[in-house]
Amino acid sequence: MKRLFHATLFFLGLLLVWHLVVRAKVWSPILLPSPASVGLYLRDAVRDGSLWEATLVTMRRLLVGYFIGILIGLPLGLVTAASKFAEDTIGVLALGLQTLPSVCWIPLALLWFGQTEAAMLFVVVMGTMWSVVLATDNGVRSIPPIYARAARTMGSKGLHRWTHVLLPASLPFLVSGTKQGWAFAWRSLMAAEIYVTILTGFGLGHLLHYGRELNAMDQVIGIMLIIVVIGLLADKVLFAPWERFLHRRWGTGKR
């Protein structure tokens, strides 16, 4: 309760500073709109449905791309951790491509897929899966060998060893890995939506882009706020339950 109070106070203070800076007319209101005008934009965008629609479009792309990324990345990570050959081939590829900023996939995606949903999806999947591969690989490698030894003596082998020992043992790494994957997916999609205009749906990135084109700074800042809020909510909804479980079982982490 006290922490909630502190957080509320901090953000109200931030709003106040913003308001005072605008009132002091340090910068032109075209460059820095007031908190009130951003609020007005958001109210109108909610009323005419454009904000809701853009959020839906963006979330659909994000979730689909993210889960495809995990679906490919997780098994690949298990494979690179299990096999020397896969480590020297797929592992090196993953390490290389993970360092590639996901914006760099956009020109390729446009040429291959044109201005389509597939291009968006491709960018998000590429942004997600390599970091998931690396996190999974790292997770399985970090398992204390005693778990596998103890499990072996009790008769666990083959598929059972993977599903009942190695996967649960690497859970702390898988959670942080998929969380990192989520952050990468989110960044990739915003980059893709800002750079690529497609007619099958306007996402939040497009609203941001057109805010700039129209010199509508209230829109730009309003959409940025929405993007931040979605990021925070995803953290709470998607990852907090897992982190609570880890905290309870492993005794790790804060809270």
């Binding site: 005693i146 030894r149 072996r152 003596t153 043992a169």
Partner: peptide, 20 residues
């Protein structure tokens, strides 16, 4: 090879932290 007729207790317990 290992078999469940011969079980081992290690210096570190080797208990699985994901189970109670």
């Amino acid at each position: 090879g290992p078999g469940r007729h011969r079980l081992v207790m290690f210096q570190e317990s080797g208990l699985f932290p994901w189970l109670d």
